[in-house]
Simulated scan of single mutants.
Amino acid sequence: MNDVSIERAGDAQMPEILPLLAPLAGTQIVAFVARDGNGAMLGAGGIGWQSWGDPPGFPAWIHVMPDHRRAGVGRALARALIERTQGEAPALWAIRPLVEGEPAPAFAKAMGMEPRYRQLRFRGDAQRLYAHLVSILDRLRRHDRIPDGATCVRLDGNNAAAVAALVRREVRGASPAIGGWIAQALKDPTRRSAIDLDRSRVLEINGVVAGAVLTRRLADGDNSEIICTVVSPEVRGGWANVLVLTETTRTGAESTCDWYLFDCAHDNRDTLGLARRTGAEHLSTEENYYYAIAGRGAA
């Protein structure tokens, strides 16, 4: 690695850097940039300056320009992130899951990171998902399993803060930017990178937020990704998940959505069963990577 410098990014540099650190959008970012001797940008790395994950740590992301990979730029940026957080956080997390078989996991392992949460990604037909969930919900209703006062409503300014708090508290590996994504959607509902208010649903019991399914619209504008499903611990494991998922998939099945992307923890038997019974296609397996700083020093 010749004539490469790593420097802390100032406010004036952030507009140039932020597109490379898109996964950290919605967090308070501390960023570093790598440049060559002519000042050309080779890559950037950033930390979301807030605790996240279990075990706790700061979310981080590194992006190196394709023509400059495998030249030590990524390692230099990683060292800068680790040195900056030494004494401030016990660990770093890759804010986005890394796909098995791609170059990113190999880089993460070379930096001493360890995989923690394993997830499977599926693509499911919107109509089949909705029809299967309706059949389960109808059976629950016939047996009076849905309590009075349980209803699903649209995500809006009245319930946004409670939903974000529930996600941060109950969803393992949930992005620390979730509150920012919801805020973006409320400010500009047409922004595709934000939560899709039209196809997300919130479970309320007697007016109190008890669950949510949050989606975002994909690049084609018609299909959706389910980025988060959560219910409160006291209603977990049964009717609550089915009710809020049914109402969410209804919004897609009754519109232009042909399919959903959704993730599932490798040990989540309910969601794995739903994927299998509806013929969802397994697209990839992903893992969240973790680097323990405490007691290790800079890499």
Rank of each mutant, 00 (worst) to 15 (best):
A280G: 15
E281W: 04
F122M: 08
G157F: 05
P97S: 15
R69P: 14
E170N: 14
E100Y: 08
V167N: 10
G112A: 06
I205C: 04
S175M: 02
V244H: 10
V167F: 07
A104F: 02
D67G: 10
T256R: 15
R191D: 07
D188A: 12
A160V: 00
T271P: 10
I182R: 09
D263N: 14
Y130N: 15
S255V: 01
E170F: 10
S51T: 05
L42V: 03
G112D: 07
R96L: 07
L203D: 00
L18P: 02
I178Q: 06
G57L: 01
S224D: 08
G10D: 07
R250D: 11
R121P: 08
R217I: 00
R217C: 01
A60D: 05
V235Q: 03
R154C: 13
T215C: 03
L129G: 13
G279D: 07
R118Q: 15
Y289G: 14
A44G: 12
L274S: 13
E254H: 09
I62T: 04
A240M: 03
A185K: 00
I178G: 06
P147R: 05
Q28C: 13
A12I: 10
L186I: 06
G297M: 13
S175P: 03
R142C: 06
P90V: 02
T246D: 07
R8I: 10
E100V: 09
G37T: 05
S51Y: 02
D270S: 12
D198N: 10
G74D: 01
A240Q: 05
G124R: 02
R141P: 02
Y290Q: 10
I29Q: 11
I146F: 03
G37Y: 06
I95F: 09
G74L: 00
R269Q: 15
C152S: 13
G295N: 04
L20V: 04
L81Y: 05
C152A: 13
S255E: 05
P55G: 14
Q184I: 00
V213E: 07
D11C: 13
R84W: 11
E247S: 07
